[in-house]
Simulated assay, not measured.
Amino acid sequence: MIEEIPTVGQLLKSVATLLSNEISPALAQQDLQFKVRIAVNVLAIIEREWQQGPQVAEEEVAMVNALLGTDNHDLKALRAELAEAIMNGQYDDDLSALATRLLPNACSRLSIDNPLYSTLLELQK
């Protein structure tokens, strides 16, 4: 019988659940409980990055290429090129349009880093 192999996300969630529900309550020291909560949060970020990160990066590449009029797939280079264009005043005439183009990606990134971030929740209303 072939057993189902758990996904990376399922493994991360299992470890986080174990730490939250069993390990942390058993710890008498509050500083260790705090460190366990940090570890659980890090695991949750890794899980969201694993699940959402590639699509968010693809969307960012497409968005930055559209802004710059380029066809580059190196996200780090694209970010640097966009930053340079912004610093050089290329978008000074219409900063609100630039912000409108950048905001969805910023929200996607925030939803990976901290989906309960109050400003993100406000923007999603």
Rank of each mutant, 00 (worst) to 15 (best):
S20N: 10
N21D: 14
N21T: 09
I23D: 02
I23K: 06
S24F: 04
S24H: 03
S24G: 11
P25W: 02
P25A: 01
P25K: 03
A26H: 05
A26S: 11
Q30Y: 08
Q30L: 12
Q30T: 12
L32M: 11
Q33V: 04
Q33R: 02
F34A: 14
F34K: 15
K35Y: 12
V36S: 05
R37A: 10
R37M: 12
I38R: 14
I38L: 15
A39N: 09
A39S: 12
V40H: 06
N41H: 12
V42P: 09
L43R: 04
L43N: 07
L43K: 02
A44W: 06
I45L: 10
I45G: 10
I46P: 15
E47K: 04
E47H: 03
E47N: 03
R48Q: 07
W50K: 10
W50V: 10
W50P: 05
W50R: 09
Q51K: 13
Q51W: 02
Q52H: 13
Q52C: 13
Q52W: 07
G53Q: 08
G53Y: 01
P54E: 08
V56E: 00
V56I: 11
V56L: 11
A57N: 06
E58N: 09
E58F: 08
V61T: 08
A62W: 05
M63H: 07
M63C: 01
A66M: 02
A66V: 02
L67P: 06
L67A: 02
L67N: 00
L68S: 04
T70C: 03
D71I: 02
H73F: 14
H73D: 15
H73Y: 15
D74I: 01
L75R: 07
L75M: 05
K76V: 15
A77G: 08
A77P: 07
A77T: 10
L78N: 00
L78I: 03
R79Q: 00
A80I: 12
E81T: 08
E81C: 07
L82C: 00
L82I: 01
A85W: 04
A85H: 06
I86P: 07
I86F: 00
I86Q: 06
I86K: 04
M87Q: 15
N88M: 13
G89W: 08
G89I: 01
G89S: 07
Q90L: 04
D92E: 14
D92I: 03
D93N: 13
D93G: 13
D94Y: 05
S96T: 10
A97N: 09
L98P: 06
L98C: 01
A99P: 03
A99D: 10
A99C: 05
T100L: 12
R101V: 11
L102W: 05
L103D: 01
L103M: 06
P104Y: 03
N105C: 04
C107V: 11
S108R: 09
R109M: 15
I112N: 12
